[in-house]
Design a protein around this nucleic acid. Sequence first.
DNA 1: GTCTATAGCTAGATAGAC
DNA 2: GTCTATCTAGCTATAGAC
Lengths: 189, 189
Amino acid sequence: MRPPKVEEQQLLEGLMGVLRSKGYDGASLNDLANSSGLKKASLYHRFPGGKKEIAAAVLQYVGEWINTHIKQILLDQNISPAERLTQVIENINVLYDRGNEVCIIRALSMDTGITLFAERLQQGTTQWIESFKSLGLGMGLSEAEAQKKALQVIINVQGGLVVSKAMGNNAPFEHALKGILEMYQLKKV
Amino acid sequence: MRPPKVEEQQLLEGLMGVLRSKGYDGASLNDLANSSGLKKASLYHRFPGGKKEIAAAVLQYVGEWINTHIKQILLDQNISPAERLTQVIENINVLYDRGNEVCIIRALSMDTGITLFAERLQQGTTQWIESFKSLGLGMGLSEAEAQKKALQVIINVQGGLVVSKAMGNNAPFEHALKGILEMYQLKKV
DNA sequence: GTCTATAGCTAGATAGAC
DNA sequence: GTCTATCTAGCTATAGAC
């Protein structure tokens, strides 16, 4: 068993970077290989299913990150709801590099990506909404209010990212995150 | 002067459809040609600059549509601000087929598209925000409030579209538009 | 203005040496 | 496990007939 030249996590981080910036169709296998220092054929050894399997692995990897750094915190009964929210907002800032990085869900949600990963993209979005809904319920909101606010959270995050990307400036993303805090009546960052 | 087989507007509508659903990298010249019934070589006759010129023409075309159906209405002093907003919301619904279509700005805002069209994408977004800012000022809002609401409008539209796409269901987009009306204190559709 | 045909290249994917 | 070399298909783009 020869040891791998590049560790799994480091490999996935590089692959994710390419997929997020170029999208599924825009990312070539050479791009993906170069992101990690491996050659194309070596990538096929790690991911025999090619680009499709690479994207699936990246989605899995991000899903686990979100589960740990967003979902589990939002559901943690040992911390006050307000504190949970501030921690999670900070983690969202890290995930998207304060508005400079594209969401992998968006990057994979054009035609080809939707065809291949529709179910996964829907699951990821649903989980995100459900987690914030739990937070709202924990704050004493009604079912309907909690659902409505949770939906607005992900709209703000995704909208903020798109607008920041188009404007070439992350102020819209920061505004969107601030709006989330205000929505839950926490004015400070 | 032989007459064109396909009229300019009809041609651009087809090309736009392909670019919106597949994105810049995902749309091949065969895809683009097939969308209009023309052959690849004929597309090069109409757009000698190839895919790049096609996307630029589509951006121009959409920009004019938005100018007519959004900007000019929002600035029209002959109509009440409330009436302007309801008309524009309906036009936004048409533009994005009630949440089923992707925004061309988003479709062209991955790596390749940004490289080619950064300035245009930024201009389009800025114009959109400025138009809604005028609406807010016309409603008596302060400069800062009008700016803030205008930014939230485009965040809601773009976020709603992304989430609806990921969920495969246009309820989030409808929720986002409703949120815009509520933000300007108009509850009805 | 539109077409068929094709050039030249790069994509995704595989074979086989080390 | 990683590599070089290579296959085939599809890509962008052009040439030239009608």
